[in-house]
Each structure stands twice: as C-alpha cells, then as structure tokens.
Amino acid sequence: MNKEVDIVKELPAHKRYDYFIKKVVDYEEVWGLYKEGWAETEDSEGRNLVPFWPKSEFAEICAMGDWKGYKPAKINLDEFLNNWLPGMIKDELKVSVFWINGYSVVVEPERLLADMEEELENY
C-alpha cells in the first residue's frame, strides 16, 4: 500500500470527507464497490447507505466481510452529480462518504451535491 493511503485512512471521518471532496473533484471520478450490484450498508437506524471513496485503493481495502468479492468500480464525476445523487435523493438513500473500518461521514445526497458544486467553483 502506498504512504498516502496509509496516512489518509487513519484520519478522522470529517477530515476524510474533506479529502474526498477535493480528490473526487480533482480526478473527476468517484469509486464504489460492485458485485452483481453496488455495495450498501446501514446506519444505526437501519436506513440504507451507499458508500463511496475517492480512489480505488480505498474502496479495495474495504472489500471484506459483507463486501468480500466486491471490486472497486469507477463512476464518472458528471454521472455521479447528474444521475447518482439525484437518484439517491429520489430513492431516499444516504451517502456514506469514505467508509473505513465502519466509520464514515453520513450525509444526505443534497449536502454532498452542494459541497461538491462549491468545490467545483474553485476550478
């Protein structure tokens, strides 16, 4: 594993959220885990969450347990902003941003969309 991955995966969830926003906008891609369907998890109230990562390496290290056999899959940023997040809003799903060892920032798709659009204004 590379040094950046080792350092970033140890950051607190809110710092990983900031890293996620910057990297995803920078590289214009989002990563999920896929195996006959996209990986999902639940929050403490049983609501479905869809986890996303900024790089394939982070998604790959999470492909264990319930996600064993899942592979990192890339989503183009435009598709994520224009199709995925609006679809998640419609389906009342929340986003698990940068899930590592069971911890992530859980946000409404609307919030993630707003934060990403704000970051995009810097480009």
Rank of each mutant, 00 (worst) to 15 (best):
S56C: 07
M64R: 14
N82Y: 12
W53T: 01
N122G: 03
I100H: 01
L112T: 03
Y34M: 04
W84M: 11
E40N: 12
E40H: 12
V25F: 05
E4F: 05
D6Y: 13
K15S: 11
P54N: 10
D43S: 09
L85W: 04
A13D: 03
Y103H: 12
E42L: 15
N76I: 10
K71W: 08
V105H: 01
N122T: 15
W38P: 00
L85E: 02
L93E: 14
M64Y: 09
L33Y: 03
L81Q: 06
F58K: 01
G69F: 11
W99S: 00
S56A: 15
A39G: 06
R16F: 00
W67H: 05
G32A: 11
W31S: 02
Y70R: 06
W38R: 07
E117G: 02
Y123T: 09
V25M: 11
M116G: 02
C62R: 05
I61G: 02
G87T: 05
A13Y: 06
D78A: 08
V24Y: 01
V5F: 10
D26M: 11
G87S: 13
F52G: 00
R47S: 12
F98C: 05
K55S: 10
L33D: 04
D66C: 06
K22R: 14
L49C: 09
S44A: 13
E29L: 09
A114V: 03
E119G: 00
W53P: 01
N101V: 02
K35S: 14
K15F: 08
N101A: 13
A63D: 03
E29F: 05
M64T: 15
E110I: 09
K3E: 15
A73G: 03
I61N: 01
W38T: 05
P72S: 01
K9C: 12
V24H: 08
N101F: 07
A59N: 06
W99A: 00
L81C: 05
E29R: 15
N122I: 08
K90Q: 13
E42I: 06
E108Y: 07
E40Y: 10
N122R: 15
I89W: 04
L49N: 00
P109N: 05
Y17P: 01
Y27A: 13
E60A: 15
D26T: 14
W67E: 06
W31N: 07
F52C: 06
E4H: 07
L112S: 07
N48D: 11
K94G: 00
E29I: 05
P109I: 04
Y123W: 14
A59P: 03
Y70C: 02
V24P: 02
R47F: 10
V105P: 00
K71F: 09
E108D: 13
Y19I: 08
K3T: 12
W99E: 14
